[in-house]
Design a binder for these strands. Sequence first.
RNA 1: GGGCAAUUAGCUCAGUCGGUUAGAGCGUUCGCUUCACAUGCGAAAGGUCAGUGGUUCGAGCCCACUAUUGCCCACCA
Length: 907
Amino acid sequence: MNTQNRTNPPPDALSKVYSPKQVEKAWYQQWLSKRYFSASFKSKKKPYTVVIPPPNITGILHMGHALNNTLQDILVRHKRMQGFETLWVPGTDHAGIATQNVVEKSLKEEGLSRQALGREEFLKRVWKWREKYGHTIIRQLHRIGCSCDWERTRFTMDEGLSKAVREVFVRLYEKGLIYRGKYIINWCPRCQTALSDEEVQHKEITGHLYYLKYAIEGTDQHVTIATTRPETMLGDTAVGYHPGDERYRHLEGKTALLPLLNRRLTIIQDDLIDPKFGTGALKITPAHDPVDFNLAEKHGLEYVNILNPDGTLNENAGPYKGLDRFEARKKIVSELEDRRILLEMKEHVHAVGHCYRCQTVIEPYLSPQWFVRMKSLAKPAIAAVKEGKTTFTPKRWTKVYLDWMNHIKDWCISRQIWWGHRIPVWTCESCRSKGTPPKTPKDSKIYTEPGMVVSRETPKKCPVCGNAELVQDPDVLDTWFSSWLWPFSTLGWPEKSEELKFFYPTSCLVTGYEIIFFWVARMMIAGHEFMGKEPFKEVYIHGIVRDQTGAKMSKSLGNAVDPIHIIDEYGADALRYGIISITAEGQDVYASKEKFEVGRNFANKVWNASRFVIMNLDKKIIHSCLKSNQAPKITLLGPFDRWILSRLNQTIFNVTDSLEKLRFNEAISTLYDFFWHHFCDWYVELAKPGIRSEGTQWTLCEVLDKTLKLLHPFMPFITEEVWQKIPHRGESIMTSAWPKLDKKRIDTKIEAEAELVISEIQAIRNVRSAWQINPKERVTVAVKTARDREMKILKNYSTYIVQMAKVSSLQIGKNVKRPKESAVANIGRVETYVVLSGLIDTQMERQRIECALLDVEKMIRGLQGRLRNEDFVKKAPKEIVEREQRKAEELENRKKRLLENLKVLTY
RNA sequence: GGGCAAUUAGCUCAGUCGGUUAGAGCGUUCGCUUCACAUGCGAAAGGUCAGUGGUUCGAGCCCACUAUUGCCCACCA
């Protein structure tokens, strides 16, 4: 497609129904080939930057992505039209565990395993898999219409980004902010890796609390402890109670005996132990519980690990070795029961940690891992938000962010998987065995272990002894250890690139609340640590997309409305419209097909209204308008031309304002209302008889042009397609200028007049409808009004009333008498009689009037109540009181007239 | 245990600074193949704004408590 060749087609070439399919692909290609999405640091414009939350390479587009990326595209298209140098950086995340799981699954189908393939071969497979499927989601984003700068597409495992990861690791290590140590971490026995605290999802589970009897050595006494995980008793090395707990005072200095294994257990006191829970006595399992681990460190207890990495029991479990942890639980419970050691079993609801990738129950597990010290790093990220350098929308997330930051814990960053950034640490075996201290960077605060080499690049030999056989740490880094650098690593960091200088910090980050801790908070930390500046000025947090039943949409649940299906069926604009229209600020949204039907209908309305305008354009008039680039003289504009232009400018203001405030649904509903209910329902209908007049021709073009521009960020395809068919300047609507409010066009006087006339037309239509008058039939109408102003207006606009209400003769005056056999309608102080010769049914008309009377009386009662209240009259603002008084007068007037009309009917 | 959100028409939801007769879409009812659009046009019905108490001249909106639902966080085993 070529814009130059696309002159206005003859009207009959426009079909009655908008078909998005033919349009979307062509325009997207056109935009790409014109490089409209590309941004350059050489620009003289102000920058506006957005980085995409990189979807996982395993991802297939779902409604959540559709929402997230539509929002970003709206921002970016809006800012681009406003004249910013706009950059939207796209890319994907390697998603360590998720991707490894997916590839392992496909290997399993081939009867293979990663262990059988070996590390190198397995990684080749993953890269192959990524080549094949890793771009699916990117292609799908094209279909939504996303205007990302695709030439800058990044991947978290790209060479540049990998370099950034290593740089960050080494820098933090040298500052003493990365350390290795043996601690209790969250272990997923299925993925067989450590997880960070954030990667554990807690779920309320109804389990049991088991009461077990532990004998006291050398006595016939015992102590009863309560546990939810009886199998961990095999790893017990102590029993404890609160130092103030009198019940157990007699146990001080004694030793308990572990049932089944007869291990001797120290008895300790610690105020960490809650005397109110269970029996107040606690079994202590240092290797399998974080609290117990702390107790063990404090009291110098032994650590007994009873688990293998896969969740089966190891040799420390004696006779239970080899059993899966849940099998073991069953067996142990039944044996304890047999031996009368299990005294009681109570139902117990508690939170159980699950792996966020595979939902397997997590085990607290003692193992050596790498950690980032977060406390000091968090400080500038906290300050930036407190000082308002970065703001959250909706505001409530500020607190969530700050709470997490203020209680931040060290981040476990090593993962025992293969797919990911390898930890840049090597070991020189000979130095290690000899205990030779390593070369320490000059102002380093760190203690380094013998033989440990931390390096940005793969070292060829040991920097201490020259040994060439160095062994790299087998583990990889948490996926989020690359994601947290995204706002600057994608712009070239650690190089001092021009891009960074121009585009950093980014403007707005758009994401869902489920990754505030994983991603947003950590990006804030990294941005301050490595760039010395906040990574984004605004964070917009949107809701999660759910299905009609409220479940989070997911493929596995089979409840997903597939955005691609919606695009195929209704078009991308309908998808975008639907998803935006239901997104109130930050609320979760419930997606169903009907929502997108509304979008399709709206697109079709835009299409048909435009088609009507195009069919009725007088090329000569338009040509001269375009040529002069001037609006016609005000005298050439009819009252409704001026009315719709006033409404248009009000809409320009409201839509721009809503977008600035990130109120997307407000912006689109303003546009929907303006276009459909003001422009189509009233203006176009009113304009039909005089459509060839210069003023109307110009107004039609002006309103359509500006409205399409306002709509473009929301519905990019149809607006471009239609805009190209109306007289326009410029190549593409997406590079055209955002409409500016023209205050001179806002005319409150004409709006008030138009509203009166519209109400009058509606009143007549109401009567017609109530009396079932054939729509084709014209009616005789008489209007009585006491006020000059209203009479003048109605007389001035009488042709419109005649036209829109199908009136045959219209009489307007102060002393108009009610015609015989007529029905009455009241608006304000205006009384309208519609002649119903032969149709009038006194009974029915009386009922109508009585109904209206009831309404009026109810309102009068409310108003009188207020006006009789002295406090109201005294304390309320003057305008409000006056308004209420006017209203009351008017209602009294209306009541009087209704009563008169009722009287007439009784004859 | 702590926190956040939601509760408005039959359904799904808006409602900004406390101030007209509380809005929209869908659905419903009535009438229309009116020459842009039946994916449409015109008209209408439909509400104790979860409950209780308070602040205020005035509350869907502010405050307190309660109820129901959902989510997040937390080392009560």
